[in-house]
C-alpha cells in the first residue's frame, strides 16, 4: 500500500467515501470503488501530545498526534510538527517526511501535518 499519499476511495454504488483498505463498502458492501484525492486545507478535529511513545518512536520524548478533516470529507491521522499553539478548528497542511526507523531499522516515510500560521 502506498502510504505517501492521502488517498481514499469512493463507492461506485452508494458514493460513500472511506479509507483505501476496505475491500467492500462499509455502507453498502459493494466492491467497486474509484480513488479520490484530498481537496483543500484540512481542519484539526482533535489532537493529543503523547509522552509515552511506543518502541518504534523511542528516540522521541513526546510528539503531537492529530485527526484532521479535508474539505471533501476525507479524514486522516498523523503526527503534527509542533506541540505548541494547537487548537481544534485550526488549519494545517500535509507534508511528507521520515517519521521513524521501525524496529527492523527500516526508514518509515509518511505524512505529517504542519500548522498554518
Amino acid at each position: 500500500m502506498d502510504d505517501n499519499k492521502i488517498e481514499w476511495i469512493k463507492c461506485n454504488k452508494c458514493g460513500f467515501i472511506q479509507y483505501k483498505s476496505h475491500l467492500r463498502c462499509i455502507k453498502c458492501k459493494n466492491n467497486k470503488f474509484e480513488k479520490i484525492n484530498v481537496v483543500g486545507t484540512p481542519t484539526l478535529i482533535s489532537y493529543t501530545i503523547l509522552y509515552a511513545p511506543p518502541m518504534e518512536f523511542r528516540d522521541k520524548k513526546s510528539y503531537a498526534l492529530g485527526i484532521v478533516e479535508f474539505e471533501n470529507g476525507i479524514k486522516a491521522l498523523g503526527q503534527i510538527s509542533s506541540q505548541k499553539g494547537l487548537q481544534i478548528g485550526m488549519k494545517l497542511k500535509p507534508k511528507f517526511e521520515k517519521i521513524c526507523d521501525d524496529l527492523d531499522g527500516k526508514e518509515i516515510y509518511t505524512y505529517i501535518f504542519v500548522p498554518i500560521t
Partner: peptide, 22 residues
C-alpha cells in the same frame, strides 16, 4: 489499523487523549 493509525505512532492512551479532547 496498521497503515491508517499504527504507522503514525499511535498508542491506546493517545486514542484516550484524542477522545477526551474531542
Amino acid at each position: 489499523h496498521h497503515e491508517a493509525e499504527r504507522l503514525h505512532g499511535v498508542s491506546l492512551p493517545s486514542f484516550g487523549g484524542l477522545l477526551t479532547r474531542a
